[in-house]
């Protein structure tokens, strides 16, 4: 089947083949019909973009689907393992009202939460990578925090001297999620 160029005329041979299959109408509909009230799919590349900290036209759909579509969540979890910089397992600690200070990843990366001296409502969320973990110098880090029911991500600037940080507000969803005793953290 020879390819058709953008909006160009369909070759006679193509037309004949498609006609024989009875799909000329269907092809025309795929090219021109605008379906209404149909859910747009979440594509695998949208999920990957979300994991990599990028924002695309599909990001909103990914965020919704992560909370209500098991398939998308499963794919997200699988892709988190690809290109993973660090994984910080669940704390497995009893719930407490204290704000955590430090978490240690499987390969020795540190995740720290430090209150701002100038503003009590703000915290520095700091990632410290040991020398053993090498990351491209210009690559931003993306932190993914997951519980059974919630997902949040935060994009960090590229690592400098083994360290990168962002500011979190105490009211941020990510802040409270990080306090959850069931939270699992992945750094990309």
């Amino acid at each position: 089947m020879s390819p058709q160029q953008n909006n160009g005329p369909m070759s006679e041979k193509d037309q004949a083949i498609l006609k024989a299959y009875g799909v000329l109408n269907a092809l025309h509909a795929v090219n021109t019909h605008q379906p209404e009230g149909v859910k747009k799919p979440v594509l695998i590349n949208d999920i990957l973009a979300y994991i990599q900290g990028r924002t695309t036209s599909g990001t909103e759909r990914v965020e919704v689907a992560l909370n209500n579509d098991l398939t998308v969540r499963r794919q997200y979890k699988q892709l988190l393992r690809v290109n993973q910089v660090e994984h910080i397992a669940k704390p497995r600690a009893a719930h407490s009202d204290d704000v955590f200070e430090k978490r240690i990843g499987e390969q020795g990366a540190l995740l720290k939460l430090k209150q701002s001296k100038g503003n009590e409502e703000q915290y520095y969320l700091i990632i410290e990578l040991p020398n053993a973990i090498s990351v491209q110098s210009d690559k931003p880090l993306v932190l993914h925090a997951n519980t059974e029911s919630q997902t949040q991500r935060a994009v960090f600037p590229p690592v400098h001297d083994g360290r990168s940080q962002i500011i979190l507000n105490k009211n941020d969803v990510l802040f409270s999620l990080l306090q959850d005793h069931d939270v699992e953290i992945d750094i990309q």
Binding site: H33, K40, P41
Partner: peptide
């Protein structure tokens, strides 16, 4: 009408 569902039309268009 067209021999193809709205969902499949949507999926192919999104790709």
């Amino acid at each position: 009408r067209f021999g193809v569902s709205d969902q499949l039309i949507q999926d192919l268009q999104v790709i």
